[in-house]
């Protein structure tokens, strides 16, 4: 199969603005947190514009609340579309979750019951969002800490079926699979093997923290060895998929994070033939 491949990227964080602008480091692309740039002006947008001039970008949001039973937030969608027109990202993603109900925002990525009613509800909303934005979006799997009695299927079947019905794409967070597998006692390899490969467009990698018997998705540690192993399995199953590391707390200097990303490049280099790892920025310009 053929999918656009951006190569290896990092999340764009304010701590690194100056380093990136002064050194123009060798990195294939950046992922921005959409909400950080939904502001009228000032420094955030100035840095964004400068760095966008030199690097491909994708947009990643946390507030779409695609699984909510509140109506879609049209004001948010309008601001998302405006930002996408400014950034011209290769794609736009958000999470398979809900964040608010009754117009109260939890500011958390809250889990859904994995059942037919939720699939129908969410697939329809994704279609509406895609129609409004004029592009396919990517939906990402969560880390979760609860399972509902109302769930009728494993998470990977739920995600796969929503993507099929909504005709959207998938952002697979390898760390989230590991965290949820630990917390809910399933085999993370079953998750990867249960996903249809053709819609998987991006991988997230991140670190987590142990809290008692549970693992919490904190994004404040380096990627751990079991997650690198799972990443290797994902590459074997899905082929070359654009990969990035998310770091949101205890953020190290840029070169340290860049060195961590090089681990992903080395793993991919061992598993995939060199032609598969050719980035497709030029080809993507036609469809982004």
């Amino acid at each position: 199969m053929s999918r656009p491949f951006l190569g290896f990227g990092l999340g764009l964080r304010t701590d690194h603005y100056t380093y990136i602008e002064e050194h123009q480091p060798d990195i294939d692309w950046f992922e921005i947190l959409s909400e950080n740039y939904m502001v009228p002006g000032g420094k955030p947008l100035a840095h964004l514009d400068r760095i966008r001039a030199d690097y491909p970008m994708v947009m990643h949001g946390v507030s779409l609340s695609i699984g909510s039973t509140d109506p879609l937030d049209l004001d948010y969608l309008a601001r998302l579309k405006t930002l996408a027109e400014r950034v011209e990202p290769h794609w736009v993603s958000d999470h398979l979750c809900w964040t608010r109900v009754d117009h109260t925002n939890s500011h958390d990525l809250l889990p859904l019951p994995y059942n037919e009613a939720a699939i129908a509800h969410i697939a329809e909303r994704i279609r509406q969002v895609q129609d409004y934005l004029g592009r396919q979006i990517l939906i990402e799997n969560l880390s979760s800490y609860v399972t509902y009695h109302a769930s009728e299927m494993p998470e990977w079947e739920f995600l796969d079926e929503i993507a099929r019905r909504a005709d959207c794409l998938i952002l697979l967070d390898i760390n989230n699979i590991y965290v949820s597998a630990h917390n809910h006692h399933f085999d993370p390899v079953d998750y990867l093997d249960g996903m249809s490969p053709e819609r998987v467009m991006q991988f997230h990698l991140a670190g987590h923290a142990q809290a008692g018997v549970m693992i919490i998705d904190t994004h404040d540690h380096p990627v751990c060895d079991p997650v690198w192993d799972l990443y290797a399995h994902a590459l074997q199953r899905f082929g070359a998929v654009s990969t990035m590391i998310e770091r949101d707390d205890d953020i190290p200097d840029f070169p340290e994070l860049r060195a961590e990303l090089a681990i992903a490049e080395r793993i991919a280099g061992k598993i995939l033939p060199a032609p598969a790892l050719q980035t497709s920025h030029t080809a993507l310009r036609g469809i982004a």
Binding site: T69, L110, A150
Partner: peptide, 13 residues
């Protein structure tokens, strides 16, 4: 608690 909305309201509560 059958419905998705009811579940979300309870979770938020």
């Amino acid at each position: 608690m059958d419905g998705l909305r009811e579940l979300q309201q309870a979770f938020l509560g």
